[in-house]
């Protein structure tokens, strides 16, 4: 076992992910070795169906791994209690929230649940953290609005604020930019970058916005058919990793602009 660095927040060792059933295990990807450092914005990219969601579900303990280890702050993920995990890792998922009748403030305040008492009363400190989260995501003006009154972009900011209020070292977002227009895609990712700088939290998100991720991320995790590579965007470009992401018949990666172009 390799020594876990002080600055490492999340690390996988020979991780195999997929679906276990009675008959046989369906392996989606195996031999995943990745190390995420504290205080970084990390983008996870890969083609549709390559296993990004499965990887995120495994890293967040929603789904069981097939083999290998997931180390969160040096501890095995399975050793965390529900509450301890909730104090270390917060999530922004693609699924719609069940009730949109909550006000923005109430929803963000739910992020304090791991810290509140049995009935969920907010202490002065809880209120301060919630207000800071609203402030950091620029949604103070929306505070008293109901969630059904919000646009998709606003709702995504609210969900990010809720994750911030949970006050965890690691925030994981599953495709936070889907359903958003070009401006709001950039806005949300830029917001994540700002939050990493301000709060020194680690933010891991999966996305199809490869060109935006290349410009904003400190580290990127690229999933292809055979391997999972973790490196800085610059190194990944010079190694030509992005060319291997998709079939080459329609689009090609342009090293100079750091984006994909249609083959004419």
């Amino acid at each position: 076992m390799t020594k876990t660095n002080q600055h490492t927040i999340l690390k996988t060792e020979n991780l195999s992910i997929g679906y276990a059933s009675k008959k046989a295990n369906t392996i989606v990807t195996s031999h995943i070795n990745m190390v995420l450092q504290k205080g970084q914005l990390v983008g996870l990219v890969g083609a549709n169906g390559i296993g990004k969601s499965t990887l995120l579900r495994t890293l967040t303990n929603v789904q069981d791994k097939l083999s290998g280890n997931v180390l969160l702050k040096g501890e095995n993920l399975e050793t965390y209690s529900n509450t301890d995990l909730a104090k270390t890792m917060s999530l922004v998922l693609t699924e719609k929230i069940a009730s949109k009748n909550l006000s923005v403030f109430e929803l963000v305040a739910l992020g304090r649940q791991p810290y509140t008492n049995w009935v969920g009363n907010l202490s002065a400190n809880d209120l301060e953290v919630v207000n800071r989260a609203l402030n950091q995501t620029n949604i103070e003006a929306l505070k008293d609005k109901k969630c059904f009154e919000l646009s998709d972009g606003q709702l995504q900011k609210v969900m990010i604020a809720r994750a911030l209020a949970q006050d965890t070292d690691l925030i994981i977002l599953d495709e936070p930019t889907t359903h958003l227009d070009m401006y709001h895609k950039a806005y949300i990712l830029k917001l994540l970058q700002k939050l990493v700088k301000e709060t020194h939290k680690t933010i891991l998100f999966s996305s199809h916005e490869i060109d935006l991720a290349i410009q904003l991320c400190d580290t990127m995790v690229v999933m292809t058919d055979n391997t999972v590579i973790t490196d800085t965007p610059c190194n990944l470009i010079s190694k030509g990793v992005f060319e291997t992401l998709f079939p080459k018949d329609l689009i090609a990666f342009d090293n100079h602009s750091g984006s994909f172009k249609i083959i004419k």
Binding site: L85, K87, L93, I97, A98, L102, L110, G111, V119, Q166
Partner: peptide, 24 residues
């Protein structure tokens, strides 16, 4: 029921979110 208030509130976000908030 009163004992479930906190859990019920986190269930408003859906089960996966509720679980991520530490709910059993």
């Amino acid at each position: 029921s009163i004992f479930s208030i906190k859990g019920l509130n986190s269930l408003l976000l859906g089960e996966n979110y509720a679980k991520s908030l530490g709910l059993n």
